[in-house]
Each structure stands twice: as C-alpha cells, then as structure tokens.
C-alpha cells in the first residue's frame, strides 16, 4: 500500500511525499514504515501505539474516524492491499 504525507510529518520521512510498503493490515504497514523511519514513531504514534489524534487518516479518500483514546486503535486492524492509499494529513498549530 501507499502512504502519502503532508505538513510537519514530512521531516520524519526525509520529505518523501509518498512511500510504498507491504503488509496485510494498516497496522503491519505502519510497523514497517516506522521500522524504515524510526524517528517517525514518536511523531505518528502515541504512548499506547495508537495513531495520535494530531493526524487525520484518509483511506482511499475516505476519512477514518479517530480511535477512542482509552482503547486499541481499530484503524490499525483494517485489511489493506497494494492498490490502497492512506493519506496522513498533519497540521500542527500553536497556542
């Protein structure tokens, strides 16, 4: 599957706009992505391994609802294939 990145997350993937990885689930693909770009882990995932609410995920153009804060991240269990695209929209704002 293909990841596409935007905004503040780009620095953690060497400013690659898109990266292709393989895996049966979105979680497996995220795992491979983080293995290839170790600094991405702390930016993308929270302390419980859930995708941070900072990032908005779009699977083939459809937004995935944010995961509950106190449980597993059901988005990571989604089955994905080589033709799927996940766009990660990241916009960090100030106080």
């Amino acid at each position: 599957m293909r990841f596409q990145f935007s905004g503040a997350l780009l620095r953690f993937v060497d400013f690659a706009k898109q990266i292709d990885v393989g895996g049966p689930t979105l979680g497996a693909c995220v795992e491979q992505l983080v293995a290839e770009h170790p600094r991405l882990g702390a930016a993308l995932l929270d302390q419980n391994g859930r995708v941070s609410d900072t990032h908005q995920l779009f699977l083939n153009g459809e937004q995935l609802d944010p995961a509950p804060r106190d449980g597993n991240d059901p988005r990571l269990s989604l089955m994905v294939g080589p033709d799927d695209t996940v766009y990660i929209l990241t916009a960090i704002t100030g106080g």
């Binding site: 929270d46 941070s52 609410d53 900072t54 960090i92 704002t93």
Partner: peptide, 13 residues
C-alpha cells in the same frame, strides 16, 4: 498521560 499532542491540538482547534 498519553497523546498530549493530539489532545492539545483538538483543544486548540
């Protein structure tokens, strides 16, 4: 205790 960045970004938004 977790995802403080996600929490504060949602709050600020």
């Amino acid at each position: 205790p977790a995802d403080g960045l996600g929490q504060v970004q949602a709050f600020l938004n």
